[in-house]
Design a protein around this nucleic acid. Structure first.
Lengths: 329, 329
DNA sequence: CTATAAATTGCACTCGTGTGCAATACAATA
DNA sequence: TATTGTATTGCACACGAGTGCAATTTATAG
């Protein structure tokens, strides 16, 4: 591996001291304009750029932010991640990718990643891992949770899933549904728990018993099989709230395939997240929008505040989801 | 910002020299077992871990790999990125996220990112940017292109899109189609160009003229509107090859909506990429699988080879796509 | 032309860590 | 016990860059 060009090389080539090179790259530093030009020319020629790693050592700070994601490979999360990456880039931060294969590995991987002096860690994981929080606290690395259910000791930006579930139930009821089923996701996920809670609470408000409650895993196939089960029974629901869009689409597919219920007249279906596909004509899915832009913006804001004032008390920002009315309910 | 715990702190607390701390963390270094234990205990207590940045300075290498992506937000790319991240993590590399908003910004962003001494850069971009290659060459940073059309001066792993398109045409012809349309993607994209070329070549082989050729942008909405246009004309095609799955799904939706053509009997549709949604019952899309695992594996292999032997001649690995037969053709 | 102020430059130290080398402590052998 | 060999340890330097301070050059005023 050929050696990287250093400031020393530039200094020799340009006939100046190494400090001069450093100053040439420092805005506002005192260097004679011609000298700076000459140095920058030489640097350009040799393909030099200051080593961010050496610089950060002395400046005592980096622009690195660990971006930690768990094992979940659902579509919404991918979009979310993509937008988050973009937002961080806008803020002048460099994301250090920490990708755990299973949720249990998250804290381990993050631990390794923290060998790099990151400014903060942004974590998006389905299940909460207390170890992560402790780890970051001990290393004094600010931690921002992206997703539901804040944990003491970390900032968090979370979608108000309970509110979203209430919105869904309200809408179904308003549509005239009375036999409402809930098709949940993986119960280990925090988002699932709060969506489920919101569902039960809302139903209680209306004095209704859930028609059925099924567990699932947030995937289309799961929504499909659960949908088949629900819709081939003797008594079928007239409304289904699904814990995410993929599952809802599975239900819609099942409805088409194994029943001749008309959607939304005889069967109303509502999803959660509002992934781009929900708008596709074949689904035309009414859903609860989990606002990516608002959320990533809030993450960026929280990050900035936290870095500006490390002593600030814990921050917890709730993002309110909203109904997106389409053809399925 | 509270100062990070350093080896010096540990050394004082444990009553040893700083070198001892360093050695305690270096496998195979000469330290008395009890001393090491004591040091590691203190380190554990104080939440210390060696600063990767300082270490990399002296070791003259990092585990960082720049992962560069352009503006394209299509579903396949997101899955691809996710799997690539996972693979890199497996290889013990840390991805440095470089996310450009527009393709033109890629080289600029990468340039900034190269202030970090990365081992290599992995680039996935729709359009090829010669600047990127020059930049990496000058900085002597190995560059691996992920995607079609290698550029001189960089390694590349690419899907044989021409072959994929041929496969699609073969299949359509075998199904009895003779009036075959091509629904392309953004013509600035390299993958589009080779898929298109493959399509034309294959058609020529069979002595057929394309029934129609439409430009698009790889999105569902585009496939839908182009589909409507194609299928509401006086004369309609009996087979459509789409440049990616999303567009193909748009076509299928259009077929359902504005025609009563039976798929696949009267209209066969083939996509490209094989995103997970292609398997969903509502689409059941026959498509050309663009193998993510093979590709990311090849990227990892190429990376390893390149790092082991920087002097090796340019590598170009072709990944052969294969047909996935489902219900749409 | 000289005196003074301002701009430019280089020296030397610093950041946190790894490591060769020499010094020391300990164990094994005679 | 004396001697040799081996395991530990600390010192000092290195990595690449930023910066205070003092030395030097240049510009400005008198």
């Amino acid at each position: 591996m050929t050696r990287r060009i250093t400031a020393k090389d530039i200094a020799m080539q340009a006939g100046v001291s190494r400090s001069a090179v450093s100053r040439a790259f420092t805005k506002g530093a005192s260097v004679k304009p011609e000298t700076r030009t000459r140095i920058l020319d030489v640097a350009e020629n040799l393909g030099y750029r200051p080593n961010a790693i050496a610089r950060s050592l002395i400046k005592q700070e980096t622009d690195l932010v660990a971006v930690v994601t768990g094992s979940e490979d659902n579509i919404y999360d991918m979009y979310f991640f993509d937008r988050l990456a973009l937002r961080l880039q806008h803020e002048g931060k460099w994301g250090l990718l920490v990708r755990a294969e299973r949720d249990e590995d998250i804290s381990k991987k993050l631990g390794e990643a923290l060998m790099y002096p990151v400014q903060a860690a942004i974590v998006r994981a389905g299940t909460v891992n207390t170890t992560i929080v402790e780890q970051c606290q001990r290393l004094k690395v600010p931690l921002i949770f992206t997703g539901p259910c804040p944990v003491a000791g970390a900032d968090s930006v979370w979608c108000d899933n309970e509110e979203g579930a209430r919105l869904a139930v309200d809408t179904l009821i308003q549509r005239g549904c009375r036999k409402i089923a809930y098709l949940g996701g993986d119960i280990r996920m925090l988002s699932e728990n709060s969506r489920r809670k919101g569902f039960f609470d809302a139903m209680k408000t209306f004095g209704l018993e859930p028609f059925a409650v099924l567990d699932g895993d947030f995937y289309h196939a799961d929504g499909y099989s659960n949908g088949v089960q629900l819709l081939t029974a003797r008594d079928v629901p007239d409304g289904i709230f699904c814990a995410n869009d993929a599952a809802a689409m599975g239900v819609l597919d099942a409805a088409k395939q194994v029943s001749n219920l008309r959607v939304p007249e005889q069967l109303a279906v509502i999803g959660f997240d509002n992934i781009p596909m929900a708008a596709w004509p074949s689904f035309d899915l009414t859903t609860i929008d989990n606002p990516i832009d608002l959320t990533t913006q809030a993450v960026a804001d929280t990050l900035k505040k936290r870095l500006d004032a490390p002593g600030l008390p814990e921050m917890s920002v709730a993002i309110t989801p909203k109904l997106v009315l389409r053809g399925s309910a």
